[in-house]
Simulated scan of single mutants.
Amino acid sequence: MSQAPGDTPEDRRRHARGLRAHLSGEVAEAQVARHYEALGFVCRETRWRGPYGEIDLIMEGSCLAFVEVKRARTFAQAAPRLAPAQVARIGRAALDYIARHPDLRLKPMRFDLALVDGKGEIRLIPDAFRFDQGV
C-alpha cells in the first residue's frame, strides 16, 4: 500500500523544517523591528507583499528603511543569503509601495540588511544595497 502524497516520513520532516524556518524568520523579524524602534523608527509594515515581492520590514524614521532580514547560525553565513535577484525584487516592491503611499515620495529612503545570528544578536547594515531601476 502506497502512502498519500505529502504523507511520507520525508514529507513530514520537510514540512517540519519549513515550519521551523518560517517561525524563526518571524522571530528574527520581530527582534529586528524592536531594534529599529529602539533607534527611533516606527514599524510601518511587516512582511509587506505586493505584486513584485515581499519586503520583510518597512521602518520609518529620519528615512524610510526597506529592511531585508537574514538569519543564520553566524553573520558570515547570513550575509551571502541576499541574492541579486532578491535585491531586484525588493527594489521593485519598494517602488510599488512608494507608488501606493504618495505621502512618502519625498522621504529619503534606503535599503538595509539586518543579520541575525544563532544567538539572536543583530547586525544592521544601513544602506546595504542599491536598486537600479533599469534592472
Score class of each variant (00 low, 15 high):
S2G: 13
A72R: 05
T74R: 13
L104S: 03
G53T: 04
F41M: 02
P84S: 05
V87W: 05
I98S: 09
D132R: 14
G6M: 06
R100P: 05
R49W: 12
Y36G: 03
F75E: 08
A30F: 11
L95S: 10
A76G: 09
H101T: 06
P84D: 04
A38P: 09
D96G: 10
T46R: 11
P51L: 07
A93P: 02
A76D: 08
C43L: 06
V27I: 15
D112V: 05
L115P: 02
A33V: 03
P5E: 12
R73C: 06
E45H: 00
R130D: 12
D96A: 13
T46H: 05
A88V: 09
Q31P: 08
D117A: 08
E45A: 01
R47F: 11
D56F: 01
D11M: 05
I58R: 00
R110C: 12
E60T: 13
R89M: 03
R100I: 04
A99Y: 07
E10S: 07
D7F: 12
C43E: 07
A114V: 01
C43N: 06
P126L: 07
L95N: 06
M1W: 11
L39I: 07
G53C: 06
R14M: 06
A76Q: 12
E26T: 14
V27Y: 13
L115F: 02
I125W: 10
M1D: 14
Q77F: 09
R71P: 04
D103R: 12
L64T: 08
A16L: 15
R14H: 12
L57A: 00
R89Y: 00
F131S: 09
V67G: 00
E60A: 11
A30D: 15
R71L: 08
K70T: 00
G53V: 04
A93T: 00
P51H: 09
A38R: 15
R71V: 06
L113F: 01
P9F: 04
V42E: 11
R105D: 10
E60D: 15
C63T: 15
A128D: 08
L23S: 11
F111E: 01
A85N: 09
V27A: 14
G53H: 02
L95G: 10
V32S: 03
F129V: 05
L19I: 13
P108G: 04
E29L: 04
V69S: 01
I122F: 02
Y97K: 02
L19C: 07
P5C: 09
H35Y: 15
P126H: 07
Y52E: 12
L82M: 00
D11Y: 04
G50I: 04
A85H: 06
E54H: 05
V32R: 02
I58H: 00
H101R: 07
A99I: 03
G120C: 12
L104P: 01
D132W: 10
H101G: 07
